[in-house]
Design a protein around this nucleic acid. Structure first.
Lengths: 356, 356
DNA sequence: TTGTAGGCGTTATCAA
DNA sequence: TTGATAACGCCTACAA
């Protein structure tokens, strides 16, 4: 019951529609442009013809002509970390809501962040969001030559002025440290993530600073590498405490939730410990998984939706909020999720502050 | 220290490079085309000039001219289900490895699958992968007019001949039913997913058929709706067994892992049950989370990498494996992950079969 | 192997 | 408001 279009396979263009509707080609273009000056009558005629021919405006051609792709590249590091899966999801949704789309890249063995950025730039995307990993200075300057804005998400960089959006990692981690001290922590273990990444570093620093401020000697704070992943954290805990007669710390701070989850599973499964009965635990990110029954993790929730919104605003040059002058980063504050893995925190929150 | 390019902001084209390198524009094009006929000397000169100007070939223009976008749209339903996050990850990786990229769409309140497909078609992508949700027949025929191939992933459709790749859901579910019967199951509960979706239906049917074949009366198999999500499943279990003096089944089959996980958490947390001590549990998909310490779920692993590979082959018209004539679907078999939530299965697997 | 000429389907500019 | 015409940046013949 479809119209007897002449083309055998595909490729209906605005000219075909124009001919059928009895208008010029640019008029067809206008009919598909919201807010263009065109009479309702013509627009209707064009749309009818378009429907009849199964015409769809070619976004590729539009991009070329308008020099705007409506595509934002999103480079995401580790999709196995639910925080990044959630973030990608949030970017997709927000972009779609505003008529744009996400060209998604993942970092893997074969493709590092520079490669991904390079390829993204080739599409002349409207912007690039980098959620993880390192960018070489070379690539950054290339992107500036090409005129494509980049914003780092949940990362910052000191060596170069590159816009970024992140959570207040230091303060959040300090809040957790305070809670753990209040709950009686004396010996601490930190499971760090990527030592190269600013996020892990900032959280570790925030945590340690607060401990020092509380009079905890640095010697009572150990640090191990959880490789930013569930398995990395699980294995790190296992190999750290296996064999010797284990002497566990009072409290563990995993630099992100997925490592906290891996840590919790390891502590229970491998050592039969209970949380927080035997040992306190806190994470960071506030992913869904962390709130589930086996964990109910004490953590700091990153406000992903807000961060995504801010990131896209920065890409567009719009800019709400105050940029940190030093490093061009926009910092939003995290929300303490009391959870149940640090005793006393929930009550403290209700009273609106620390019970120091 | 960069070259004194004349343009103020951006927009270096192949003509600029050609001029600097002293060649024609198509030669520049060839220099960036693997396997094009060009002397090494010229290629080197072009590449040097390109680097000096920070030139990047414009993929958009290339798409328009060559009528090949190297972009595949991936429409993903629920990113909160780790199976889909994993699948998207796998698609991104495979596409990147072959010089293509994923334009990612997510289904949400504001954008249904038809909308997403429509927008994807507008980009004249090389193909569309649909991992979830319904497509209207209208849109499908439109896509055929436009000549863009669509492949369903983990879905099939009966009403129209649309290519699809899926796991052998019936056989997998039947395998689980067999294991549960062997382990002494007599009363069953099925937590189904989207009743509209073929995947849930197929698994339910496969499970029920096997039970019947084993002589389990249909009246001993109950079915509830878990809404394909963790929370949906958790709540379904909660409201099904709360209040009345609970009479639990022997075995629960959740149609996917994320629901099985929600079910496990609910059974333990809300009712203090142990798995498989008090009740057996099986899932489907084989996501990472299901293998973790708190769950060690008995499930069927979908071979995501293979399915992704097959899906992309179908998009390209290449086609290994045998298409089911009836519904154009390519079916791969799942792998039983014995886990620990159905007793005896691990042993049975070692012996290479059912112990019927 | 290389260069010339034309076209991909749209938006942008400018008259009418 | 509408239509002619010229970009947008590249690829694909075709000819040299």
């Amino acid at each position: 019951m479809r119209a007897p279009t002449k083309q055998t396979t595909n490729r209906v263009t605005s000219y075909d529609v124009a001919k059928l509707a009895g208008v010029s080609q640019p008029t067809v273009s206008r009919a598909f442009t919201p807010g263009a000056s065109i009479t309702k009558d013509k627009r209707d005629r064009v749309l009818a013809a378009a429907k009849q021919l199964s015409y769809l405006p070619n976004s590729i051609a539009r991009s070329l002509a308008s020099n705007r792709s409506n595509i934002v590249a999103v480079i995401v590091g580790d999709m196995h970390n639910p925080f990044y899966a959630e973030s990608l999801q949030a970017f997709m949704m927000r972009l779609q809501e505003t008529g744009r789309h996400a060209l998604a890249f993942t970092i893997s063995d074969g493709l590092d962040c520079d490669d991904a950025l390079m390829q993204a730039l080739g599409y002349h995307v409207d912007g690039v969001v980098v959620t993880s990993a390192h960018l070489s200075s070379d690539l950054i300057s290339t992107s500036q030559d090409v005129g494509i804005p980049i914003v780092l998400f949940n990362r910052r960089t000191t060596d170069r002025a590159l816009a970024s959006v992140r959570c207040d990692n230091e303060t959040g981690a300090a809040r957790l440290a305070r809670g753990m001290c209040d709950a009686g922590g004396g010996e601490f273990l930190i499971i760090r993530g990527d030592p190269q990444g600013s996020t892990s570093r900032d959280r570790v620093n925030g945590f340690r600073s607060e401990l020092e401020a509380r009079g905890i000697a640095p010697g009572r704070v150990e640090e191990i590498d959880g490789k930013s992943s569930y398995a990395g954290s699980y294995d790190a805990i296992l190999s750290r405490f296996k064999g010797r007669s284990p002497s566990f710390p009072d409290a563990i701070f995993a630099v992100n939730d997925i490592m906290a989850i891996g840590c919790a599973d390891a502590l229970r499964r491998e050592f039969g410990l209970s949380i927080p009965g035997d040992i306190m635990l806190a994470g960071f990110d506030g992913v869904r998984e962390a709130t589930r029954a086996p964990y109910e993790l004490t953590t700091i929730r990153q406000p992903v939706d807000i961060m995504v919104e801010k990131t896209l605003e920065l890409l567009e040059g719009r800019q709400t909020g105050t940029l940190d002058e030093a490093d061009k980063s926009l910092v939003v504050s995290g929300e303490l999720i009391a959870g149940k893995t640090v005793p006393g925190l929930a009550a403290a929150e209700e009273k609106g502050g620390s019970q120091a």
